[in-house]
């Protein structure tokens, strides 16, 4: 299958997951946005060498995946995609930061390696939480929730258009790339010259299509605001979800359960 088609199907899969009917899906979108935000802030607030403090935070994505019945292999694939980028950012840490931070017998582990590992864990946790949010809420509903939380229309509408036009761009790219492939007869299809022209045409075609979509929206009374039909029902379960998870993150951030467990074990088995 064409790589681009696979990417489109993958993107659509994320939106389809948001149609689920579990209790996590049923929570008010604003609550899920806020909990995810607290989670991300808690995770990124640790210092660069922190590892043990981050590990208990895995509890949140694991619980959400289980309760929302999300496919683990799909989410894992998505999270792994981000790894090369994180490694690229942190690859020089072990080279520049060579001070020994841990010593296991004769093995010395430098501060750079620890900070790289910490960066990787933090990225996987935050990307995972964001993916879970989209997979249990849907992009449009998230934008509507942001609007209700007081984010100006101009930002949320831009996000919605961006999301919509990603599909438009990718679908156009898929068709153009297939047409090029079919006439390349297995070769590189005249190399970069044809690719350059294809990208130029792609931009123009996407532009035209985006204009047609915008015209269709205007024809149906669009004036720059998306009116959500789904009513926000902020109920008791939403309050428990919000307070429960926020308190858990605060607790994890302040008492460091991993270190506590370590002290407990070493206390009993000195």
């Amino acid at each position: 299958m064409n790589v681009i088609s696979a990417a489109v199907i993958d993107l659509k899969q994320l939106e389809l997951l948001a149609q689920g009917q579990t209790t996590v899906h049923g929570h008010d979108a604003r609550v899920k946005v806020l909990v995810t935000l607290f989670f991300i802030v808690s995770v990124v607030s640790y210092n660069r060498y922190e590892i043990s403090g981050l590990l208990p935070f895995i509890f949140f994505p694991v619980t959400m995946v289980y309760r929302a019945n999300l496919p683990i292999p799909y989410l894992a694939r998505k999270m792994l995609l981000i790894c090369p980028l994180v490694l690229l950012i942190g690859i020089f840490n072990p080279l520049f930061d060579r001070s020994t931070l841990w010593q296991l017998g004769s093995l010395e582990i430098s501060g750079g390696c620890i900070s790289l590992l910490s960066l990787l864990i933090r990225s996987l946790l935050t990307i995972g939480a964001a993916l879970i949010l989209v997979a249990t809420t849907g992009f449009t509903t998230i934008c509507q929730a942001l609007e209700r939380l007081g984010i100006p229309d101009v930002f949320t509408v831009q996000l919605l258009f961006l999301h919509r036009y990603i599909f438009v761009l990718v679908e156009e790219a898929e068709r153009a790339s297939r047409a090029r492939e079919l006439r390349s007869c297995g070769s590189k299809g005249r190399g970069i010259a044809s690719v350059g022209s294809l990208i130029g045409h792609l931009l123009l075609r996407t532009w035209q299509r985006a204009e047609r979509i915008h015209t269709a929206m205007l024809s149906r009374g669009f004036t720059g605001q998306f009116h959500g039909h789904r009513q926000a029902h902020f109920g008791r379960s939403d309050l428990i979800f919000l307070v429960g998870w926020s308190a858990t993150f605060l607790l994890m951030r302040t008492i460091d359960p991993a270190a506590l467990l370590g002290r407990f074990i070493t206390g009993y088995f000195p």
Partner: peptide, 28 residues
């Protein structure tokens, strides 16, 4: 004046059919 465009893909842009059909009345 209700306008139905040549390519329905240009006209359908919301996540579900329900939300798409509701788009116009909500704007009203």
């Amino acid at each position: 004046v209700g306008m139905v465009f040549q390519y329905p893909d240009d006209q359908l842009f919301m996540p579900t059919v329900f939300e798409d059909v509701a788009f116009g009345p909500l704007n009203q």
